[in-house]
């Protein structure tokens, strides 16, 4: 993206007067980056940093938790995407990965854990039980989806989703973080 920046190179005797749109004084952002000068906003920088180091809350409920554990193991290794440490305490976590069925008895605990997480926080719902209640949707004790309890950012379908799908969901969250202006995010490889 070409961003025209207003760089004036001071000369002997002070700043030059004249037309600020003097193009031979301006350098594009790419030219600056090639010379090792990066321009960004603090907001973008923090989002970039947060996207690459999201710490999940260890919150496996049911079968999808086992696929999530397999995603952390050496074959699929999600720590290379920044999800390095699973925090046991919600006070230290960024992302709540709801993996499994939420039951009526567990619902107050899910809400409490979500409120105990500090801002900014996100929620990934893994598996059809967390998305909409799944095969247990008409049971007397199952909550029909995590988004009835907490606001969900990314949905990963599957029963259970393969570890590759879980990693895709996590990268979707990273893309969502980097582009908050977009309503629906299709993951690009930025």
């Amino acid at each position: 993206m070409a961003l025209k920046t207003n760089i004036r190179f001071p000369q002997r005797g002070g700043m030059p007067e004249g037309d600020p749109a003097n193009t031979h004084d301006l350098l594009t952002q790419e030219e600056l980056e090639s010379r090792g000068i990066l321009f960004t906003s603090l907001d973008k920088l923090f989002r970039w940093g947060a996207g690459w180091s999201l710490w999940p809350l260890q919150f496996g409920l049911a079968c999808c938790a086992i696929e999530m554990i397999c995603t952390t193991q050496s074959r699929f290794d999600m720590s290379r995407f920044g999800y390095e440490v699973f925090r046991n305490s919600p006070r230290q976590a960024d992302v709540m990965i709801v993996a499994g069925t939420i039951t009526e008895k567990m619902r107050p605990a899910v809400e409490l854990l979500y409120h105990q997480m500090p801002e900014p926080k996100w929620v990934i719902a893994i598996g059809s039980c967390a998305i909409s209640g799944g095969p247990f949707v008409d049971s007397y004790s199952v909550v029909a989806g995590a988004d009835k309890v907490v606001p969900v950012d990314v949905y990963v379908p599957g029963c259970p989703p393969r570890p590759e799908a879980i990693i895709d969901g996590m990268l979707q969250l990273k893309a969502k973080l980097s582009h908050p202006e977009r309503k629906q995010v299709v993951r690009d490889d930025k």
Partner: peptide
Amino acid sequence: LMWDGYEGWPLRKDFVQQPNKYQGRRR
């Protein structure tokens, strides 16, 4: 399996599910 204040015996054939805002479609 259910919590202490729960009313009703779920596996009885005449059990009526108490609907609440967290639940999905009915049987």
